[in-house]
């Protein structure tokens, strides 16, 4: 599958323009989400994350600026915006509330059917999507309303994956799930990305999750991009992120604290396993020093 970049050029979005409720949700955003990468978007509620998600698949039209999918301006032919919505799949927050069909199978098939997929192709795409999210074939015949919360969430996710989008945008896919459910759904998304080599954009509040799963990060603050780049480069700016009132992973905080106390800790550590290795390295070097001094 080809790698599709998605790019925002000078994008601004204003809700209810020219009314007393006017509110600028995004201001002059320039950012490229790289093809084949998993980019995490992080920011406070109201920073414009959800607006950004809806701009990417043409549910909202930028007040000014352009959104490019590959080389095409998605609003070039406004009448064919549905085609863009098939290419850029969007999974909303708490998507389980959008289920409506009699069976899980029918619900997953809703999107592909709207696209005109039928017969064997439909069967294939539905079962493939169900497989990606870990729904066993026996569940497909059940009513979605009999399932557990976590399973419903995965049905909704499968409903978008079944449309075989080139870009998948997920708005807080793990919100409200317990640790087990969180890990399960995020692992599924990661595996899907690895197999399909798709472009994935993951919106989350959890710096821990983003640092664990993303290749790239974009930090949004007050309708603007505060910083973006690979996870490494962004977390080298951990102080900048923290001073802007956003949480950084606890593990990075420990490393920063040790650095402040004069220990030679490397920058850009943001997962427990990396921190583990780094501390071992540190312990060993101190041991050596101790031996040398003795």
């Amino acid at each position: 599958m080809k790698l599709t970049d998605i790019r925002l050029e000078n994008v601004s979005y204003i809700y209810s323009p020219n009314t007393p409720f006017q509110k600028e949700a995004l201001e002059n955003i320039n950012i490229t989400f790289k093809g084949g990468k998993l980019t995490g978007i992080i920011g406070h509620t109201g920073s414009g994350k959800s607006t950004l998600a809806q701009l990417l698949n043409g549910l909202l039209k930028p007040t000014s600026g352009k959104v490019y999918l590959g080389d095409t301006d998605i609003w070039e032919k406004p009448k064919e915006i549905n085609k863009i919505r098939y290419k850029v799949g969007l999974v909303f927050q708490y998507p389980e509330y959008q289920l409506f069909e009699e069976t899980v199978y029918e619900d997953i098939a809703y999107g592909p059917k709207n696209m005109g997929v039928s017969g064997d192709n439909l069967n294939r795409t539905v079962s493939e999507a169900a497989d990606f999210v870990g729904l066993t074939p026996d569940l497909l015949k059940k009513s979605p309303f009999e399932l557990s919360g976590g399973e419903k969430r995965r049905v909704a996710l499968a409903g978008v994956i079944a449309m075989e989008p080139e870009v998948l945008v997920l708005d807080e896919p793990a919100a409200g799930l317990d640790p087990r459910g969180r890990t399960e759904i995020l692992e599924r998304i990661r595996n899907y990305q690895k197999q399909k080599n798709n472009t994935i954009i993951l919106i989350s509040h959890s710096m821990e999750d983003i640092s664990e799963y993303a290749d790239e990060i974009a930090v949004l603050k007050n309708s603007k991009v505060l910083c973006s780049g690979t996870v490494d480069t962004v977390f080298r700016n951990a102080e900048l992120i923290r001073s802007n009132g956003l949480a950084i992973p606890k593990i990075t905080e420990i490393m920063l604290e040790l650095k402040h106390r004069g220990f030679p800790v490397s920058d850009g550590i943001y997962t427990t396993s990396d921190a583990h290795k780094e501390i071992i390295r540190l312990i060993n070097s101190y041991k050596k020093n101790g031996e040398n001094n003795a």
């Binding site: 809806q54 698949n57 549910l59 549905n82 919505r85 098939y86 799949g89 969007l90 909303f92 998507p95 509330y97 959008q98 809703y110 999107g111 709207n114 696209m115 409903g159 978008v160 449309m163």
Partner: peptide, 16 residues
């Protein structure tokens, strides 16, 4: 608000 959300979610799945 909820109606708006559901409409958007179904539109994202190609509803017309």
């Amino acid at each position: 608000e909820e109606t708006e959300k559901i409409m958007n979610a179904q539109k994202a799945r190609g509803a017309d």
